[in-house]
Simulated assay, not measured.
Amino acid sequence: MARLGALLVAAALGALLSFALLAAAVASDYWYVLEVADGNHSGPGHAEPLSSHSGLWRICEGQNSCIPLIDPFTSESLDMSTSVQHLISLHRAVMVVLPLSLVLIVCGWVCGLLSSLAQSVPLLLFTGCYFLLGGALTLAGISVYISYSHLAFAETARQYGAQQVQAVRISFGWSSALAWGSCAAETLSGAILLVAARALSLSQRPGGLHSVVV
């Protein structure tokens, strides 16, 4: 039973880590980083390239000037092009899916705690599958954000001309890396719970306790 206890503790810690990483990712503003190497600003006082970084809720230029992004739930889209409406829909999906993933992690952690205390194989199996589906949901949110970012940059290039964005370098920052880490931790927790369910099932069989202990 020592192995079972270790598996349950590892799954619980993985879920806590997943929540902490995703909460930090959702709250931070370094999902998308944009840098512009402007040759006209290469003199004294302009050593740093122009840059901005954005998160799910706002965009920041320089060090301190941050402005909220357009609220996709209240935006009037009747007079917007189809491509812009599609971007708004993607942004809306991201702002729903990733915070929802946070709530689901908390619910999964509670389910895992209850199934551990009850020593129930079906509950452990359910919670393990729940975390795997939660990891898939987080992955879907990240994928939608990546698609949204690429399409937003393509729309900007279309509106202002490809030559205007030739000096622009884009990348995904540490906030997106935290989200990837959360997805991995949540998936790992689900897999560990499935292994724990298997170990508990073996321990409940006649003569199965020795095989779990060793």
Rank of each mutant, 00 (worst) to 15 (best):
V94P: 01
S101A: 05
L100H: 10
C66L: 10
I105H: 02
L114H: 11
R92P: 00
L123G: 14
L113F: 05
L87A: 11
C111R: 07
Q85E: 09
L114W: 04
I88F: 02
F73K: 15
I67G: 01
L125H: 05
S75T: 12
L69W: 09
S89I: 10
L125M: 13
V96I: 13
A93Y: 07
C107S: 09
P122K: 09
S89Y: 06
T74D: 08
S77L: 11
C107T: 12
L78K: 12
G108A: 14
S83Y: 02
P122C: 13
S81V: 12
D71L: 06
S116L: 03
G108T: 03
I105R: 01
I88L: 13
T82Y: 11
G112D: 10
C66K: 04
L90C: 00
L114C: 08
M95H: 07
L87H: 04
S101F: 02
L90K: 11
S116W: 11
V103Q: 10
A118H: 05
S75R: 13
L90T: 02
V97R: 01
S75F: 02
T82N: 08
Q85Y: 02
L78W: 04
E76M: 03
L69R: 10
L98N: 08
T74M: 06
L78Q: 14
V97F: 13
L123M: 14
L104I: 14
W109N: 04
L98Q: 03
C111S: 09
I105T: 06
C107P: 06
W109I: 01
L102K: 05
P68Y: 08
S116E: 04
S83E: 15
V121H: 14
L87Y: 06
P99K: 10
E76Q: 13
V94Q: 00
Q85L: 07
I70D: 01
P122M: 01
G112R: 03
T82W: 07
L78A: 09
S77G: 07
C66I: 14
L114K: 04
V121F: 00
L78F: 11
A93V: 06
L90V: 03
L113C: 11
V106C: 06
G112Y: 00
S115F: 00
